[in-house]
Amino acid sequence: MSNVLHRRPGLRLGLLLTPPMLWLGVAYLGALGALFITSLWGQNAFTGEVERTWTLDNFRTLLDVDVYRVITLRTLAIALTVTVVDAVVAIPIALFMAKVASSRLKGILLVAVLTPLWASYLVKAYAWRGMLSENGLVSWLARPFGLDTPGYGVVATTLTLAYLWMPYMILPIFASLERLPDSLLEASADLGARSVETLRRVVLPVMFPGLVAGSIFTFSLTLGDYITVRIVGGASQMLGNVVYDNVGAANNLPFAAAMATVPVVIILVYLALVRRTGALENL
């Protein structure tokens, strides 16, 4: 048996790759395909049964009805804001971890960044609900400055999601900075650049692929979220809620599928933009 495999490398490669390729092709891309096909089907208004006739009605509803446009734009805005907030917070943290901290402190910080990933998503979301409540921690902290908790809504959702996805932004940036040799920073200073200039001309460009990788995580995870907004979002809805409600309460699977293609399309557009920067080749 092993002799046969040794003499026929093509067969060996085939056997090794078939299961994962099947997974990718059938289970993963197939499901996406099924989603798209379903979105082109209709529904019997009376019985609620799926009617397998081709129609663009679902997409027409999606574009014509104001609520869905607003929800799409809101979701997009939240995803972008979460990404920006995460980047702004993660860059200094990653920079400190990779270039300033001693190797002991670096290990501790790495654990600190990773541990929240072990805790349940729901627990963390509810913790934020508690902190953002009327007499909660945020309100108590903000009061001396004459401010108050933002309450449950879009801001609270953005804050909570930014917290939840923070490790996914810190880690790729940290990894890209780890690859930046100290001698490059010294060379920059040696050639006359101040710290700010070095940050702008050397650190940021080297870090950029990591930043892009992190933003793909935070952006796409936010686009698909529907639980956090239920817990801290008040009456606000995101794309995920519409999908959820149409699968459950409304029992309109084709429309849910149409709605679910929206984040997929947005992500594809985002990836196309990212690709043009050339960052994907340097990941």
Binding site: P181, S183, L184, E186, A187, S188, A189, D190, L191, G192, A193, R194, V202, P205, V206
Partner: peptide, 18 residues
């Protein structure tokens, strides 16, 4: 370093890869 009128050639060259 950025105020000193000296320049360095590094052991690993430290060329900016980007």
């Amino acid at each position: 370093p950025f105020r000193r009128d000296v320049n360095t050639v590094f052991q690993d060259y430290a060329l900016f890869p980007h």
